[in-house]
Amino acid sequence: MEREKIIAIVNDFLVNEFEVDGDEISNEANLKTTLGLDSLDYIDMVVVIESNFGVKLGEADFKKMVTFDDFYTTIENKITEKNK
Protein backbone atom coordinates (compact mmCIF):
# COMPACT_ATOMS: atom_id res chain seq x y z
CA MET A 1 0.00 0.00 0.00
CA GLU A 2 1.30 3.43 -0.92
CA ARG A 3 2.26 5.79 1.87
CA GLU A 4 -0.11 8.49 0.59
CA LYS A 5 -3.04 6.06 0.86
CA ILE A 6 -2.00 5.08 4.41
CA ILE A 7 -1.86 8.75 5.40
CA ALA A 8 -5.27 9.45 3.85
CA ILE A 9 -6.91 6.49 5.61
CA VAL A 10 -5.30 7.30 8.98
CA ASN A 11 -6.18 10.99 8.82
CA ASP A 12 -9.74 10.14 7.79
CA PHE A 13 -10.40 7.87 10.75
CA LEU A 14 -8.67 10.23 13.17
CA VAL A 15 -10.95 13.07 12.09
CA ASN A 16 -14.16 11.05 11.77
CA GLU A 17 -13.86 8.50 14.57
CA PHE A 18 -11.60 10.22 17.10
CA GLU A 19 -12.75 13.82 16.45
CA VAL A 20 -9.23 15.15 15.88
CA ASP A 21 -9.06 18.56 14.20
CA GLY A 22 -7.70 17.83 10.72
CA ASP A 23 -5.88 21.16 10.70
CA GLU A 24 -3.73 19.98 13.61
CA ILE A 25 -2.50 16.88 11.79
CA SER A 26 0.90 17.28 10.16
CA ASN A 27 3.94 15.03 9.78
CA GLU A 28 5.88 16.96 12.43
CA ALA A 29 3.04 17.38 14.96
CA ASN A 30 3.35 15.56 18.28
CA LEU A 31 1.09 12.53 18.07
CA LYS A 32 0.10 12.23 21.73
CA THR A 33 -0.41 15.95 22.30
CA THR A 34 -2.48 16.40 19.15
CA LEU A 35 -4.63 13.31 19.67
CA GLY A 36 -5.19 13.77 23.39
CA LEU A 37 -6.39 10.17 23.65
CA ASP A 38 -6.86 8.17 26.83
CA SER A 39 -5.93 4.50 27.21
CA LEU A 40 -9.34 3.30 26.01
CA ASP A 41 -9.03 5.46 22.90
CA TYR A 42 -5.70 3.79 22.12
CA ILE A 43 -7.40 0.39 22.32
CA ASP A 44 -10.07 1.63 19.92
CA MET A 45 -7.34 2.93 17.62
CA VAL A 46 -5.61 -0.47 17.58
CA VAL A 47 -8.91 -2.04 16.49
CA VAL A 48 -9.47 0.57 13.76
CA ILE A 49 -5.91 0.16 12.47
CA GLU A 50 -6.30 -3.61 12.38
CA SER A 51 -9.62 -3.40 10.51
CA ASN A 52 -8.24 -0.90 7.97
CA PHE A 53 -4.77 -2.33 7.42
CA GLY A 54 -4.80 -5.90 8.77
CA VAL A 55 -1.90 -5.21 11.16
CA LYS A 56 -1.70 -4.84 14.93
CA LEU A 57 0.10 -2.12 16.83
CA GLY A 58 1.13 -2.81 20.39
CA GLU A 59 2.03 -0.69 23.37
CA ALA A 60 5.71 -0.84 22.43
CA ASP A 61 4.89 0.55 18.97
CA PHE A 62 3.01 3.52 20.44
CA LYS A 63 5.82 4.26 22.91
CA LYS A 64 8.26 4.72 20.01
CA MET A 65 5.99 7.11 18.11
CA VAL A 66 6.50 10.82 18.67
CA THR A 67 5.16 12.43 15.49
CA PHE A 68 2.46 11.61 12.97
CA ASP A 69 5.26 10.74 10.56
CA ASP A 70 6.39 8.06 13.05
CA PHE A 71 2.81 6.79 13.20
CA TYR A 72 2.49 6.51 9.41
CA THR A 73 5.93 4.89 9.12
CA THR A 74 5.11 2.30 11.79
CA ILE A 75 1.92 1.30 9.99
CA GLU A 76 3.74 1.24 6.65
CA ASN A 77 6.50 -0.98 8.10
CA LYS A 78 3.96 -3.36 9.68
CA ILE A 79 2.16 -3.72 6.33
CA THR A 80 5.47 -4.38 4.56
CA GLU A 81 6.45 -7.03 7.15
CA LYS A 82 3.05 -8.69 6.83
CA ASN A 83 3.30 -8.88 3.05
CA LYS A 84 6.75 -10.51 2.97
Rank of each mutant, 00 (worst) to 15 (best):
M1F: 00
M1N: 05
E2H: 12
E2V: 09
R3S: 11
E4N: 14
E4T: 14
K5R: 14
K5N: 13
I6A: 04
I6V: 15
I6C: 11
A8E: 14
A8T: 01
I9K: 06
I9Q: 08
N11S: 00
N11I: 03
N11K: 03
D12Y: 11
F13L: 11
V15T: 12
N16A: 04
N16P: 06
E17Q: 10
F18K: 06
F18W: 06
E19I: 07
E19W: 11
E19G: 07
D21Q: 08
D21R: 08
D21T: 06
D21N: 15
D21E: 13
D21L: 07
D21W: 10
G22A: 03
G22P: 04
G22W: 03
G22Q: 06
G22E: 10
D23S: 15
E24K: 15
E24F: 07
E24T: 09
E24C: 08
I25V: 08
I25G: 00
I25L: 05
N27M: 12
N27Y: 12
E28F: 12
A29I: 07
A29E: 07
A29W: 08
A29N: 05
A29K: 11
N30M: 10
N30D: 15
N30E: 12
K32P: 09
K32G: 10
K32D: 13
K32T: 13
T33A: 09
T33L: 02
T34G: 05
T34R: 04
T34N: 09
T34P: 09
L35E: 09
G36I: 04
L37I: 01
L37W: 04
D38E: 12
D38Q: 10
S39A: 14
S39N: 07
D41M: 08
Y42S: 06
I43E: 10
I43Q: 13
I43V: 15
I43H: 11
I43F: 15
I43Y: 12
M45N: 04
M45G: 02
V46F: 05
V46E: 13
V47I: 15
V47S: 07
V47N: 00
V48S: 09
V48Y: 01
I49V: 15
I49E: 03
E50Y: 13
E50A: 13
S51K: 14
N52K: 15
N52E: 14
F53D: 00
G54R: 08
G54S: 01
G54I: 03
V55Q: 00
L57F: 03
E59R: 11
D61H: 06
D61Q: 00
D61L: 01
F62I: 01
K63T: 13
K63W: 07
K64D: 11
K64T: 12
K64L: 13
K64I: 03
M65C: 14
V66G: 00
V66L: 02
V66K: 11
T67N: 05
F68L: 01
F68D: 02
D69R: 04
D69W: 05
D70A: 04
F71G: 04
F71R: 04
F71Y: 15
Y72S: 03
T74E: 12
T74S: 05
I75V: 10
I75K: 05
E76T: 07
N77S: 03
N77F: 01
K78S: 05
K78N: 02
K78Y: 03
E81W: 08
E81R: 03
E81G: 00
K82S: 08
N83S: 06
N83V: 05
N83D: 02
K84F: 05
K84C: 11
K84T: 07
